[in-house]
Design a protein around this nucleic acid. Structure first.
Lengths: 219, 219
DNA sequence: AAATATTTTTAGACAAGTCTAAAAATATTT
DNA sequence: AAATATTTTTAGACTTGTCTAAAAATATTT
C-alpha cells in the first residue's frame, strides 16, 4: 500500500505525540504539532484510518495501529540514520542535520536504509542521543537521568538532549557541551535551580534550569 | 524562485533531449520522454516559460534559458554524485543506482551537494562514465570512440555507456564488462557487424552491433 | 443543568499536476 | 493547392492536500 509523504508526516507526528501518553491523540494536538489547520487533520486522519494505519473515532482522537507504528518507527530509523551520516560522513553540525534528514527520510527503499545502516556501522544512537530502531523496529533503551534532577558532586556523561531546536543545539555547541561530554555538578543554586558545572574536567559553566531540564546524563 | 520536483523533471527531460540537437524540443518529444500526455506537457511548458526557465513559442517547442540550463546541470550533478555514492559507498550494483538517484537528486541543498562531492573525492565521472558537472556547472569532456566504429586489433578501455537501461547494464555485468575494463577487438564479422572481443586480456565474448553501438571506448 | 467556551467536523474553495476528448494549427501527401 | 494526417493546444474533469468559515459535538463553568 502506497503511503504518501504527507501521510508519513502525520504518522510521525502521531507517533511523537504518543510517546508522552497512552491516550488517543486529538485533532488539535496533531494540528499544533504540524502547524496545520485542524480541518486538514480531520481529513487526513480519516484517510489514515481507512488505510488501517490508525484507529480513529470521531471527536475521540487517533491511536496508531501496529502497522502504523511500524511505519512510523521505520521513518524514525531512516531519519536518525541519515542524521548520523550527515554528521559523521559529511561533517555537518549538530544543529544542521535535522532539516535535511527530514527530506531524506522519505526515500523508500529498505535496501538503501539497510545498506546505509551497515555503512555507518549499525549505530545505536543518533547525534542527539536518540535511539535508532534496527531493521526489525527494536531500539535500545537509553539509561539516563535528567541533569536538573541531580545534585552537588554528581557526575556523568551527556547521552542525549530533549530539545532539538537549532537555538538550543547552537547554545550547547558554544559552551562546548557535545554528546559524550563529561559533566560534573559543582553547585546547585537554590534560588533559581541553575547549576555550576565542569565540562570535560576543564571548563566551568553556569547553566539555567531550563537548560538542565533538557539534558540527559548517564551517571 | 521555488521549482517543484515536477518542474525539475521537465527541465531534465528537455536538457537530455537538447543534447542531441540545437532545435527546439517539441511537446511530443517531451511527452514521449516522460511518458506523459501531450496536454500535460503543454501546461507545464507554459509554466516553465513564465518562470523564464525555457523559451517557448506555441506550436514551436522549447529551449532552455541559461537559468534553466544551469538548473538542469545542477540536477545532473546531484544525480551523478548520488550514483557514485550508492555504488562506491553503499555497494549497489551498476544497474540499481539510477532509480534511487532519481529521488535523491531532488533534495535541494548546495551545502549537501558540495559536501557529498568532497566526501566522494570530487569524482569527474559517474558509474556509467558520464561526466559530473562541478559546482560551477562545468564538466570534463570524455575522450571516447564508439566501439562499433573500431576495427580488428584496436584496443582500449571502456569509459562509458550510452544506454542506461537495467537490462543492458545487467547484460554487461554478466559478461563482466565493467567500467574501466580493457577491450581488444579480435574480429569484426562483416555479416552482422558483431564483434569478437577479449575482455581484460582474458575472457572472449561475441557482442552484437547493437551492444557495441552503446559502448564508449578510450583508445 | 444551563450557559458558555472549546474542539472537531463539515462544507465549500483553491492550487498543482495530471488526464481524455475535442478543436485548432501545422505538416505531409497526392 | 486541396485533402489528409499529425501535432499541439484548449476545455473540462479528477485527485491530493491544503485552507477558511460555519455548524455540530463535546467540555467547562457557574
Amino acid at each position: 500500500m502506497r503511503i504518501s509523504q504527507s501521510e508519513e508526516n502525520y504518522l510521525k507526528a502521531i507517533y511523537k505525540l504518543s510517546e508522552k501518553t497512552d491516550k488517543p491523540i486529538s485533532t488539535n494536538q496533531i494540528a499544533k504539532e504540524m502547524m496545520m489547520a485542524a480541518a486538514s487533520v480531520t481529513d487526513m486522519v480519516k484517510k489514515l484510518s481507512e488505510k488501517k494505519l490508525i484507529h480513529y473515532t470521531k471527536y475521540k482522537g487517533a491511536i496508531l495501529t501496529d502497522t502504523g507504528e511500524a511505519k512510523a518507527t521505520d521513518l524514525i530509523r531512516k531519519h536518525r540514520l541519515w542524521e548520523v551520516f550527515l554528521l559523521e560522513k559529511l561533517s555537518f553540525a549538530w544543529d544542521e542535520v535535522h532539516d535535511l534528514a527530514e527530506e531524506l527520510e522519505h526515500i523508500n527503499s529498505d535496501q538503501l536504509t539497510n545498506r546505509l545502516d551497515a555503512f555507518l556501522g549499525y549505530p545505536k544512537f543518533d547525534p542527539h542521543g536518540d535511539p535508532i530502531p534496527d531493521a526489525q523496529g527494536n531500539m535500545q533503551r537509553r539509561d539516563q537521568s535528567i541533569l536538573a534532577t541531580l545534585n552537588n558532586g554528581d557526575k556523568g556523561h551527556l547521552v542525549g538532549v530533549q530539545e532539538h531546536s537549532k537555538s538550543f543545539l547552537q547554545y550547547l555547541g558554544q559552551i562546548s557541551l557535545t554528546l559524550g561530554a563529561h559533566i560534573e555538578i559543582i553547585e546547585k543554586y537554590e534560588y533559581d535551580q541553575s547549576l555550576k558545572i565542569i565540562i570535560n574536567k576543564d571548563k566551568e559553566s553556569i547553566i539555567s534550569n531550563k537548560v538542565s531540564q533538557n539534558l540527559f546524563i548517564k551517571l
